[in-house]
Design a protein around this nucleic acid. Structure first.
Length: 431
RNA sequence: UCCUCGAUAGCUCAGCGGUAGAGCAUCCGGCUGUUAACCGGAGGGUCGUAGGUUCGAAUCCUACUCGGGGAGCCA
C-alpha cells in the first residue's frame, strides 16, 4: 500500500508511488488520455491517466469522476515541465470515495448572490481557500506578536448586560429573565483585565446591528483588542504600527503562494513595515480644505475623506487627536487641549479605510463620572467600570483592530465578506 | 433609514412592443498533452410577484418582494 501524502509535499516524492486523498477540481479528457486536477487542501496537482497504461477499468473509473467528487488516487510522482506546479501524478489506481452530483459552482463566472448562497461550497475554490489561509496566518501573527510582547490573552464575554456605547446597534436577546445583548466590543472588560495583568488582549467576534451595506461592513466581525496599563497615547501608536508591520511581514514571508493566487501586488505590501506617517485631525482638515473639500473643524470624516487622506501614503496613516465631541465618552482629553482627545484611527492604504481605532482612556474618576452624566449612561450597569477608576486607577490605552478589514487589505480583495468563512451581512444569515 | 442598480434556462448574460436566445454546466458521440481544453448533437423556461396600458408585454407604467453597490455609522 502506497503511503498517503499531501499534494503540497509531492516534490519530495519524485519517482515514488504515493496515494493522494482529495477532491476532483477539474477534468479534461481525450479518448485515450484523461487529466484529473486533484486538490487536497495543500495544493493542486494534475493526475494523468493513459488508457493504454491503466487499462479499461481504471480509465472508466476516472471517466466516472465528476467535479468535486472525493477520490483517492494512487500513482507515481513525476517531474514534468508542462505541469504548472512542476510535478504530476501518473495514475495507477483510483478509488472513488463519493461521486458528486452536478456541482453548482462551475469554473465559470458566478454572481455574488449565488456564491453567497453557496458559501459552503464556494470556500473550496482556490481563491477562497487562499483567503482563509491568509486570515489564519494573520491571526497567528497577531497572537504570536502580542504573546511575545508580554500580553496575556483574556476572553471577554459574548453575552453582556449592556453596551459600551449606545444600544441602537445591539443585538438583543434574553438571559433567562433579563435583557441581554451580544457584545459589540470587549474593550471595557479588557480595561478591567489590564488592571490585573498589565498588558492584555482579546480576539473574538463582535456583533453590530447596523444597517450598513458597504464593502467594509459585516454584522458579525472579529476584533483584536489590546489594552495596556501605564501606557499612554504615544506608546499606544508605537504598539499599533509595530503590530501591523509584524503582521504584514509575516504574511509576506509565509503566504507567497496565496498572495499569488489572489494576484496581490506584493510590492505595495513590502512598503508597509516601518514607522507609519501621522497627521493630526487639525492637519487633516486643513489638507482636505486645500484639496477643495467642503469640511470644517468639528466635522467627522466621511469615506471619501478617509480615502483621500490615506491615498497620500503607501503605508497606513494615523489620524490623531480628534475633537472630543466626535469621539467615545471614555477617551482621554489632551491635557494641553481638552477640546481634542488622545486617540488615533489607522487608515489602511489603497482605499481600504480604517482598520484600527484606539485611544488613551480616561483614568480620572471625577472626569469619567462627568462623562457618564453627559452621555446619560446608566450608572448601575456601568458601576463596575467606574470601580476601575476607584481602585488603583492608572493611565492606560488600547485599540481595536478589525480582523476582516485587515485581511481584506492585506489580501487585496474587493469586499470584506470574503475575508471570513461564513459572513453575516445585512439580511443574510444563510448558510 | 436614504440614494442607486438589478431580477429571463442549473450558472453568467443578451433580447427592451410582434414565434424565448447564446456561452458554460448536464447527457450522448469524437479526440494520446489538456491548462476555464476543444469539436458535433440533445434535453432544459409560469422571463421575481401582483395589477395596469395595448390588438399584442420578458420589453412600457405602478406597487410589492428579494438582492447588489453606495451614504450615514463604525473595526
Amino acid at each position: 500500500m502506497a503511503p498517503v501524502v499531501k499534494i503540497g509535499s509531492l516534490p519530495s516524492y519524485i519517482e515514488q508511488t504515493v496515494m493522494l486523498e482529495g477532491w476532483l477540481y477539474n477534468k479534461r479528457s481525450s479518448g485515450k488520455i484523461q487529466f484529473l486536477q486533484l486538490r487536497d487542501g495543500t495544493g493542486l496537482v494534475q493526475c494523468v491517466a493513459v488508457k493504454s497504461e491503466v487499462g479499461d477499468e481504471v480509465f472508466a473509473e476516472c471517466a466516472s469522476l465528476t467535479q468535486e467528487s472525493s477520490v483517492r488516487v494512487e500513482g507515481v510522482v513525476r517531474a514534468d515541465e508542462r505541469a504548472p506546479s512542476g510535478v504530476e501524478l501518473v495514475v495507477q489506481r483510483v478509488e472513488p470515495v463519493q461521486i458528486a452530483q452536478e456541482y453548482p459552482i462551475t469554473l465559470k463566472e458566478h454572481g455574488v448572490d449565488f456564491l453567497m448562497d453557496h458559501r459552503h461550497l464556494w470556500l473550496r475554490v482556490p481563491k477562497q481557500a487562499a483567503l482563509m489561509r491568509i486570515r489564519a496566518h494573520i491571526q497567528r501573527a497577531i497572537t504570536e506578536y502580542l504573546d511575545g510582547q508580554g500580553f496575556t490573552r483574556v476572553d471577554p464575554p459574548i453575552l453582556t448586560p449592556s453596551s459600551c456605547e449606545d444600544t441602537t446597534e445591539l443585538f438583543q436577546t434574553t438571559y433567562f429573565d433579563e435583557e441581554a445583548y451580544l457584545t459589540q466590543s470587549g474593550q471595557m472588560y479588557m480595561e478591567a483585565a489590564a488592571m490585573s495583568l498589565g498588558k492584555v488582549y482579546s480576539a473574538g467576534p463582535c456583533f453590530r446591528a447596523e444597517k450598513s451595506k458597504t464593502r467594509r461592513h459585516l454584522i458579525e466581525f472579529w476584533m483584536v483588542e489590546p489594552e495596556m496599563a501605564y501606557v499612554e497615547h504615544e506608546e499606544n501608536l508605537r504598539v499599533q504600527e509595530s503590530l501591523v508591520s509584524h503582521v504584514v511581514t509575516h504574511v509576506l514571508n509565509h503566504c507567497e503562494e496565496e498572495l499569488r493566487t489572489l494576484n496581490r501586488d506584493i510590492s505595495a505590501l513590502a512598503k508597509v513595515p516601518g514607522t507609519f506617517p501621522r497627521m493630526s485631525y487639525d492637519e487633516a482638515i486643513a489638507w482636505l480644505q486645500k484639496k477643495g473639500f467642503d469640511i470644517k473643524w468639528g466635522d467627522d470624516f466621511g469615506a471619501p475623506h478617509e480615502t483621500e487622506l490615506a491615498g497620500q501614503f503607501s503605508q497606513p496613516v494615523f489620524i490623531e487627536r480628534y475633537p472630543t465631541e466626535l469621539k467615545a465618552f471614555y477617551m482621554q482629553p489632551d491635557p494641553n487641549r481638552p477640546e481634542v482627545v488622545l486617540c488615533a484611527d489607522m487608515l489602511a492604504p489603497e482605499g481600504y479605510g480604517e482598520i484600527i481605532g484606539g485611544s488613551q482612556r480616561i483614568h480620572d474618576y471625577d472626569l469619567m463620572k462627568q462623562r457618564f452624566a453627559q452621555h446619560k449612561l446608566p450608572e448601575d450597569t456601568y458601576d463596575w467600570y467606574l470601580d476601575l477608576r476607584r481602585f488603583g486607577s492608572v493611565p492606560h490605552s488600547g485599540f481595536g483592530l478589525g480582523l476582516e478589514r485587515t485581511v481584506a487589505w492585506i489580501a487585496g480583495i474587493e469586499h470584506i465578506r470574503e475575508a471570513i468563512g461564513f459572513p453575516r451581512t445585512l439580511y443574510r444569515l444563510y448558510p
